[in-house]
Structure formats: C-alpha cells, structure tokens
C-alpha cells in the first residue's frame, strides 16, 4: 500500500551535465585551497620543464660564496658561490620525477595485486594478502636504500626503489574497493552475462575504483617525496655540505634540504629556501588530494561559500553539529 511514485531527489531532468560539472568544480574548490595547490603544482612543473633551458649550470665562484639574497642572486649563493635559485630550479625536475615515478610504480603494483586478490578471491586472495602483510612489516627504506646502492644514485632509481617497496597500502585499499564492487549486484550481472575474469577486472572493477586510486596517487606522491628525503638523509655520502658539487644526475632539490646546522646560523637562506619550496610543494599536493576527496564524497556537506551570493538568511536557530 505504499506510494507508487517514489521520487528521487537527485535524478531530475534539470540536472544537466553542465550543472553537474559546475557542482563538481565547486566541490573541488571547497575553500579555494585545492585550486591554489593545483595552480602551484602546475607552476612548479612549468618551471621544472622550462628551467634547465633558461638557466645555466650553477658555476663555482669562490669570491661570491655565501652571499645573502640580492637582486643578482634572489635566493642567495651557496658555499662555493653557486646561485641557489638556479640550483633549486634545476633540481626541481628530478624531485618531481621521484615523486611521480615512485607513486606511479607503487600504485601500479598495488592495483594489480589488489584487483587480482579482489576479483579472483579464494587461494589467490589469501596468498596475495599474506604477501601484502609481509610487505607491510618489512623495513621498506632499508631495502630501497639497498636498491639505490646497487643501481646507482639517480632520480629514476630513487623513485623506482621507493615505488617497489611502498605498494602495500595501495594493494590493501584496491582489494577492499574491488571486493565492495564484487559483492555488488553489478558484478553478478557481469558474470551472468558471461564476462571473463579479465573482462570483469578491466571493464567493471577498474573504472569504478579508478577515482579513488587517483586520490591515492596524489597523496602517494607526497608520501614518496617525504620518504625520499629520509632516504637521502640516511646517507651522508650524497649530502654534501650545502652547495657542494653534486654528483652528476643527482642535482635534486632534496639534496639541498639536508643543509645541517651550519647554514642555519650564518646563512639562513640556504636552509629556508629549499625547505620552503619542498614543504609548499608537498602541502599543495595534500590540498589537491583533499579537493579530489571532497569530489568523491558528494554526501559530505559543503562549507559555506566565502563569497556567498544568496541573500542573508534570518535565522531563528543556527546550524548545529
């Protein structure tokens, strides 16, 4: 005896694609921070790509050592008189490369392991998950450090080594998502329609968990960057006293980070500028990740717009909770 016409709030004819897109953009923007983060990261990528063509390799000039920031050297100069800005600009590309490579490798391995475990189930699931548990409890950075030693120090290898050991979190998350897709009725219909495992994994599971994986990827880039700073700090060989000559292929922003106490007292710019660039980069990534996450949870209520256009409401009682 219940109503025949039970309506749906959300599915209305007036909800066009344009409207949905605008809503998605507003969800992403939330309080403006994700947009700032996105713009900042885009700027860093442009600088990293264009920078090496515009700037020259920082030259050693003993007579210009440890100069404080000036118009000629906006970020000051290092111990041997190299321009710090040039060093940062040229080191940016390798650093971004570490983050993107590491995150891409770990997400790729994690996705394969997680989806295989989730879709096939049974003994494959059990074996892969025990393997993931094992990967969770190994000292990841020691193995990454060893891989770097064997393969040689470069941005590619650092990213590769960290990616190879940090896939466990992604695998566990992908398996959980794949299981939730598998237990839904959509999967039953796919099996009834005669879809093979491979077809189900690539056409049903992957598209549904792809959005979550993109969010995970953004956070993973930040995580890989943090781990690579720790990896590089574990090894004094590649951390020359600030501004020292770097081995070829290792001119990373991250190398400038571990400046040590000496530069903090006398030559503060050598400490704060690289650290500032690094931290702002990571925080911008976290903001983008937060914005994407808000995009994925449409149920989450949005905070009030900063520049609200609707009329001020006369309220008898404010919002609670």
């Amino acid at each position: 005896m219940s109503f025949a016409a039970i309506s749906d709030w959300h599915q209305r004819a007036s909800h066009g694609r344009k409207r949905r897109r605008r809503l998605a953009w507003r969800r992403f923007c939330r309080n403006g921070l994700p947009v700032i983060g996105l713009a900042y990261i885009a700027l860093l990528f442009i600088v990293a790509i264009v920078g090496p063509f515009v700037t020259r390799q920082p030259t050693v000039n003993i007579f210009q050592a440890n100069l404080s920031p000036s118009w000629a050297h906006p970020f000051g100069t290092g111990q041997y008189g190299q321009d710090l800005l040039t060093q940062i600009v040229r080191g940016l590309g390798g650093t971004l490369l570490i983050g993107v490579t590491g995150a891409a490798i770990s997400v790729a391995i994690g996705l394969i392991v997680g989806i295989a475990a989730g879709v096939f189930g049974g003994i494959i699931d059990a074996v892969l998950m025990r393997f993931t548990d094992f990967a969770f409890s190994i000292p990841t950075l020691i193995i990454a450090l060893f891989i770097v030693v064997v393969t040689g120090f470069s941005a590619w290898n650092v990213g590769l080594s960290i990616g190879l050991v940090t896939w466990a979190g992604c695998a566990r998350m992908a398996r959980g998502l794949a299981l939730s897709v598998r237990n839904g009725t959509l999967m039953d219909s796919a099996i009834l329609a005669g879809g093979s495992r491979w077809y189900i994994a690539t056409r049903y599971v992957l598209p549904q968990i792809a959005s979550n994986m993109i969010v995970f990827f953004v956070f993973q880039v930040a995580s890989v960057l943090f781990q690579s700073t720790t990896l590089i700090a574990l090894d004094p060989q590649y951390v020359p006293l600030t501004g020292g000559q770097l081995p070829p292929g290792s001119n990373l922003l991250l190398n400038l980070l571990n400046g040590g106490g000496g530069s903090y007292i006398g030559y503060r710019w050598l400490f704060w500028f690289p650290l500032g660039v690094y931290c702002s980069m990571v925080i911008a990534l976290l903001w983008i990740g937060d914005g994407l996450q808000a995009l994925l949870n449409p149920q989450q209520p949005l905070p009030r717009r900063w520049f609200a256009t609707w009329p001020r409401l006369r309220t008898a009682r404010g919002a609670r909770g």
């Binding site: 109503f3 016409a5 039970i6 309506s7 709030w9 209520p301 949005l302 409401l313 006369r314 309220t315 008898a316 009682r317 404010g318 919002a319 609670r320 909770g321």
Partner: peptide, 25 residues
C-alpha cells in the same frame, strides 16, 4: 513522499538538523 519534509520537520523541532540546516521562522 520522500523529500516532502516530514522527517525534517520533526528533526528541526528537536534541533537535530545536520550541517547546513536552519530553522528560519
């Protein structure tokens, strides 16, 4: 029907509206 404001009426009397809900008058 769902969405006709039945539950919201009761919840607003008890002040249990979620985020963004306001009693105007």
């Amino acid at each position: 029907e769902s969405g006709s404001g039945k539950s919201v009426t009761l919840m607003s009397i008890l002040g249990l509206l979620g985020e963004g809900g306001r009693v105007i008058r």
